[in-house]
Design a protein around this nucleic acid. Sequence first.
RNA 1: GGAGAGGUGGCUGAGUGGUCUAAAGCGCUUGAUUGCUAAUCAGGUGUACGCCUAACAGCGUACCGAGGGUUCGAAUCCCUUCCUCUCCGCCA
Length: 426
Amino acid sequence: MLDIRTLRNNPETARRKWASRGLDVDVDALLALDDRRRAVIAEVETLQRQRNEESKRIGQLKKAGEDADGAMEAVREIGQKISALDKERGEAESRLAEQLMGLPNFPHDSVPVGADESANPVIRTWGQAPEQDFEPQAHWDLAEKLGIFEFQRAAALSGAGFSCLTGAGARLSRALISFMLDLHTTEHGYTEVNAPYLVNDEALRGTGQLPKFAEDLYRLPADNLWLIPTAEVPLTNLYRDHIFEGELPVNLTGHTPCFRREAGAAGKMTRGMNRLHQFDKVELVKFVKPSESYEALETLTGHAEAVLQKLGLHYRVITLCTGDMGFSSAKTYDIELWAPGQQAWLEVSSCSNFEDYQARRARIRYRNENGKPEFVHTLNGSGVALPRLIVAILEQGQRADGSVVIPEVLRPYMGGLERIEVTARA
RNA sequence: GGAGAGGUGGCUGAGUGGUCUAAAGCGCUUGAUUGCUAAUCAGGUGUACGCCUAACAGCGUACCGAGGGUUCGAAUCCCUUCCUCUCCGCCA
């Protein structure tokens, strides 16, 4: 959520920032609503002051044994005015808050302006495509031969969009989770968190999924809870309503499954493990002072890249343009892995600086140099998502005979296994 | 799931209708004093919003888990709800 005062002070900037995201926002209407809200507040508070003074006087009169009936009647009338105006105040405040909650963050000035993903610049590429003097297979074909996925059986349980890893596939998944968590906790300075997978409305409002994106989420109506679409939600909201007292920066990492309805994904690349309703992910979350957040975004992105570098995987980093950025973000880098079997780049991580947008919604603050509470900046990024990482390991690591080489850093987590062989299926 | 107890300022904890603009203690902080430390004394010590501003200055309003109600007036009475603790039951 943005600060209404920012809009008040710079309405033109606000219009321009939202326009760069393709939104035409009626800023004047918002400001008019804000004017009315403040006028009502001033009126209510004046009346409340009168009531306080008069009530106190009534108490004194009664104590002195004097007649207070007239005064009581007068205060009763004030009270009636207050309740009428107070209702109006509540309406004005909640209407303004709802409207602000529904508006996305401002893009940072360094973000390239563009309409859609075709305007996302590639800012660096790491490694190179493996030399494969054969026609590389897509992972869904490889998986079949390796006997490590059970798509059909998963679909029988839960429908399309669910995967089931078996044998070396399941172990690979577990190995990757351990490897990534170990890396982030021992070399990158993150604290590991094992957080709830079910959260309430308030948590989802804090990070920006609600109220606008309910259709992307799985909901449990009997308990009024939602399945998390990313660990960002529980990890960031761990510090909802908190004031940090000098312990910043705070860095959290955690592995969770993620649940997404993918309501708008019809027709997109959904074969194999490219896009699932449930997948595992290791997430990175940072709480930092505002002055440090853009430096922290570079660091965080580097931590996600380190995972891929240690695994020896070819990837690239792009900057999302204004039209392609997520709702709450001020600046986002996407990391994409090369999938030779599909001749495609697959997004495995999205690293964002939300500035104070989430912090204001979730009321996450710290004490600045003057001891005054101020909103922190929050960041997060996948470090990284499992399915597409496995896709890239399989497709980049495949050999002519269909076997797949396990990256060296993973072997200790795989009981020393060096390759997954085609004969693996029982 | 059943029975009971409880949620008050950074912490402990008083407060059952009108100087509560919340006692006291601890912590923190400023100053004084004693040659250092310590001790003692005096003062200060929350958050949000609004008004006014050069101001993180001043004035005001709200906030005693949350929401609603009664009342001239609510931390205090009533209702709803969330959470915590204890005991019992069930259970990985």
